[in-house]
Every structure is written in C-alpha cells, then in structure tokens.
Nucleic acid binder design. Structure first.
Length: 224
DNA sequence: CTCCCGATAT
DNA sequence: ATATCAGGAG
C-alpha cells in the first residue's frame, strides 16, 4: 500500500493540462439533457455503454410520459423497455430505473438523495453515476466522475500511478483527486470528456490537432 | 470474471 | 467483422 503523494512533476502537469483544457472547452458541461436531479439520474443510468447523444434521443419521450419518480414507479418494466430500447442493455436499465424510482418514492420521500450512501443504495447506481448526480444536479464535489473517457485520458496523460489501473475506476478516481482542486472535480470530468470525444478518442486519436501532446504518452504509442 | 445489448464508426 | 459508447450487477 505505498500510497505516496504524487510527484511534483505530476502535480504540475495536471495543473497545466487543466488550464489548457479550460481554455479549449470554456463551455464544457454535462451533455446529458436534463431539467432536474431525477432526469439526470435516469439519463445517467441509461448512458452506460451508450453515447449520450443516443440517450438524449429517448429521454424526451420518456420524461414526457414519466416526469416524476411517482409516475415512473407506476410504469411497467415493458413500457419502460420500449422507450429506452435503443440505448442497449434495455432490460437491465428498465429494471434499474423502475427500481430506482420506486425506492426514491418509498424511502426518500420522492426526492433524489443528495448524498453518496443513499444514491449508492439505488439499483443501477454505482460511484460513477452517483458522482454525476452529486456534481451536476447538487453541485457537490465528493468525487471525480470516472467513465471510459476519463480513464483513457488519465492514462494517456500520465496521471495514473500504474498503467494496470486503467480498468479500475476507483483507483483512477483516487489518483486524480489529489491532483486537482476539489471545487474543480466536476468540471475536470467535463473537460476530459469533451477532449476525449472530440480529439483524444479511443479509436483514432487526432494527435496532430491535439493541444496536449506535450503532456501525453499516446503520441509515443502512436508512432508506429 | 461474465453478462447485459443496440447503434455507429472503422 | 470488430471496437466502442458518460457502467453496473451477480
């Protein structure tokens, strides 16, 4: 458990990266359309292994029919499945949003919880989804949202202690937290995701047009 | 670890 | 054909 502090060089690189990203994406924000915490919670559950663009195609009809936890809790799983089918994993997701809505009504007075423990008690909600809701719906920075983009970028930019952790979201989160100001944690994931979607994508990173190559390991890998 | 799973890019 | 997309549960 050699949980050493990050090196000063890593700290400085992290700050440099954040500053550049902030200038590149001054209006970075949550790309999942939502009007309140409940909609964001549902949209985030639906976003698993699916583009947020696709999620935004199904949520208007979904929220029109089931705008509140109370209404959604009265839906049948089949009704929900039909509306969310194109997001993939639709049986699990329908069961989870139905179960989450039901639990919110029964245990949380119809309101989406604003703390980590209660959010984690909802079906289909783990740390990533909880961090999204806390950060974007409640403005609470208790952790860093680690999704596939954040994990990939964190590794490419040399912000992880060891490359083995690319699959472990919790370890990635623990590596990232001390490198950035807590008040910036939510924005950090928006910035990394913006860059990860547009430039530093998984398939074909556009290193020629990347402003961060100097702080990136991927450029060496790509030199084939 | 496996499974869930449709849509899109390559 | 294969990889990937704001993951989570068993």
């Amino acid at each position: 458990m050699a949980d050493r502090k990050p090196t000063k060089a890593t700290q400085e690189r992290a700050q440099r990266i954040y500053t550049k990203l902030e200038k590149l994406y001054p209006d970075a924000h949550c790309a999942l359309n939502h009007r309140n915490a409940f909609e964001l919670l549902v949209a985030t559950i639906l976003s698993a292994q699916c583009t947020d663009e696709r999620v935004n195609m199904v949520t208007p009809a979904l929220f029109k029919k089931y705008p509140t936890p109370q209404k959604m809790a009265k839906a049948t799983q089949e009704q929900l499945e039909e509306l969310i089918r194109t997001t993939g994993f639709y049986r699990n997701k329908a069961k989870n949003i139905l179960g989450a809505a039901t639990r919110i009504v029964e245990k949380f007075d119809g309101k989406v919880p604003d703390n980590m423990d209660d959010l984690l008690s909802l079906p289909g909600v783990a740390r990533k989804t909880a961090n999204v809701v806390l950060g974007n719906a409640f403005g609470i920075n208790v952790g860093v949202v680690v999704d596939t983009h954040v994990g990939r970028l964190a590794w490419r930019m040399g912000l992880l202690r060891n490359a083995r952790d690319t699959k472990d979201a919790v370890k990635i989160e623990k590596d990232l937290m001390p490198l950035f100001e807590q008040e910036n944690w939510t924005m950090l994931s928006h910035l990394l995701i913006s860059h990860g979607r547009g430039v530093c994508n998984a398939r074909k990173p556009d290193c020629e047009n990347c402003q961060l190559v100097d702080d990136c390991k991927q450029k060496d890998v790509k030199k084939k």
